[in-house]
Amino acid sequence: MAVPRFWRRLKNLYNLLGTHCKNCGSYYYPPRNICPACRRGGKVEPYKFKGAGEVLTYTIIHGGPKDNARPTPYVLAIIKLDEGPRLTSQIVANPEDVKIGMRVKSVFRKLGEESKHGIIYYGTKFIPA
């Protein structure tokens, strides 16, 4: 990930910062500038997700890219946040301990790094709640 690309997403990665449409009550992560349901009638505001949710489904990665912050095997899951949006994230846990439907909460971790000399990508992962 190039430095500007990471920097642009930094606030959303650190704090699960998304959006909420005050008109229809929908929540979006990543954030949307326009509510796709309400279109012109939408009233979109920034929203910081609480970071609690459940595992909808997951996979165990055995052959991932070489990455010191994410050694294989690791768990990649689709998580449904309590406010509604679904997102893909790593679950920091033993693969055997991860179950569909289990409660998870967000934590602040290293997501990776550009290289040994490059920047470190920080952001949100999930752990069993």
Binding site: A69, R70, P71, V92, F108, R109, K110, L111, I120, Y122
Partner: peptide, 13 residues
């Protein structure tokens, strides 16, 4: 520390 934890992540928590 976990493999993806460092001084910054610990400070943040």
């Amino acid at each position: 520390p976990d493999i993806d934890e460092d001084t910054a992540t610990i400070a943040v928590e």
